[in-house]
Design a protein around this nucleic acid. Structure first.
Lengths: 293, 293
DNA sequence: CCGAGCGTTCGGAAATTCCGAACGGGACGT
DNA sequence: ACGTCCCGTTCGGAATTTCCGAACGCTCGG
């Protein structure tokens, strides 16, 4: 077993064909094929089934996959440590979070763990983010969630075991224009709102999911776009919207939006990582450095 | 970086000279030298200072050492897992424990973790045992100890951080022949015993150390040999001895020994491993499988 | 039936790894 | 001070490994 072979194995897993893996590795397909065959010979197991559409992992191949990731990660961390460079924590975050929440998390890492380099990877889709954590391309990821389990907000969680800590509460606000008929009411219930127009983003959006949990299916969904767009439409009285409170703080101050009187639970800014697969020594302690004091 | 180079690096660390490492690896010294040079080139650091007496690790080399062990261990465990073989736990124990305590520990592993192969390594000296744990040749070791820290019984603990669980209490008995003048006394104190002859083994022996803690320097030490020899001499009225209670249970039943009335704390059968260096996934959980229900 | 896309085989070139011989340096004993 | 021993290194060459490109066989879709 050689690290070079594991790297090739991983490329095949990722790209699904010898041909594409070869391109990615800047090798000839025959070299890739040969390395995989040699690795299979060394281990005495078949790692892939071969088909006209490419390579599919066998059960043994699936078992190797986690090890390969881990060994390659450790080799990289070893290189960094031996060179006197800092350890690298690859942290994924959705683009929607990258601007708002990531800086304070980075600040905490910088303050409490100056020995660690944190590399932020922005991603557009939560499922891709979680896949990267599961497959070892990221050490951890930041996302919005609620409840006691990953996916409590409503999105599908991967089958593989994930561990998490909740770094910060993320308070929400259900907002409307000041002239809204319900603006002066207190002690609203979801039932009061079932005939409202709820300005929303796509179904994968955390606030769409939060809206589902808090308001139920009652209000009519009006898809308008991201947080800034939802806020703008709400200010124009085109509907109500469920948004993170910090995103509408200025609108409250300027009087262009008001918060409706519906009690709201907080979401959590959640740091998630793969259980039992920690490429960094003391990774749990490192991740805990991001928690609120 | 290649695993083959790390294996060579480890051999040089262990054997201290290129020449002896070459013998151990069945390579020519020039091949060993060349691999080390190539590794240094790849990493961009010097790993050894060369001298007429052999190779000495630099700080960068010391940092690599732990990683090398870990990577090689993981590669081996990966091979086993991928082949569908069980994971291997290398467990060290002093020869003096191997016969008495190890079987029950093995039985617990077999019952609770049939997925793990436990390989027992007997060793004569505790410091060698602990060195093997520190240097990664063993996943864990069994020894007798007391108190809240490794080494609480009195032997020197390594500088590196060790973690442990206490698997079982090991009750002790201070024994004498039935005709001993103090045999009928109750509520003895160490002071009552300071003029006694205490039958002992070597200073590295756990019971010697326990005797020091419990009885102090008062009794005269008579070095006689291992547990069976100490028991035999005590039966012949040649002195008192501090022994694990199970080792003298038969002598109690047959009336050839009695237990003196001095209250005794238990020792602990302690499972020790290197903190932060766990080559097996879920190693802590595996080790906890050896604990008493 | 044919073309595309896939992985594999195979012979050969290129690169890597190992070896043995020879060398230089340091330490030790006489 | 010198000779010997042991050490690691250098170097040329042999052996082995790795990579490549060409050719092939297989499956699938049009």
């Amino acid at each position: 077993m050689q690290l070079r072979q594991l790297k090739t194995f991983e490329a095949v897993v990722r790209h699904r064909t010898v041909t594409d893996a070869a391109i990615a590795l800047d090798l000839a397909p025959s070299s890739v094929s040969q390395q995989i065959r040699t690795l299979e010979g060394t281990l005495g197991v078949v790692l892939f089934t071969r088909g006209p559409r490419g390579m599919e992992l066998t059960p043994a191949g699936r078992r190797l996959r986690g090890w390969a990731r881990s060994l390659l990660d450790q080799a990289e961390q070893a290189t960094r440590d031996v060179r006197g460079e800092r350890q690298l924590l690859r942290l994924g975050a959705l683009e929607t979070l990258a601007g708002s929440y990531v800086p304070q998390v980075l600040a905490r890492f910088a303050e409490r763990r100056p020995d660690i380099d944190v590399e932020i990877h922005s991603e557009r889709a939560r499922d891709g983010l979680l896949a990267d954590v599961i497959e070892g391309r990221l050490e951890a990821a930041l996302l919005l969630d609620s409840g006691d389990d990953v996916g409590g907000l409503g999105f599908p969680a991967p089958a593989e075991p994930l561990t998490f800590i909740d770094l910060d509460p993320v308070p929400l606000a259900l907002v409307s224009a000041p002239a809204h008929p319900l603006a002066a009411r207190t002690a609203l219930t979801p039932d009061d709102l079932k005939h409202e127009r709820l300005l929303v983003n796509v179904p994968e959006c955390s606030f769409w999911m939060a809206g589902n949990k808090i308001l139920g299916p009652g209000p009519k969904r009006i898809k308008v776009g991201g947080v800034p767009v939802m806020r703008a439409w709400a200010e124009h009285g085109l509907g109500i919207s469920l948004l993170p409170r910090f995103a509408v703080a200025d609108s409250f101050r300027s009087g262009t939006l008001v918060q409706l009187g519906l009690p709201l639970p907080d979401l959590s800014l959640r740091l998630v990582w793969r259980e039992g697969q920690e490429s960094l020594p003391g990774m749990r302690d490192i991740l805990y450095a991001a928690a609120r004091p």
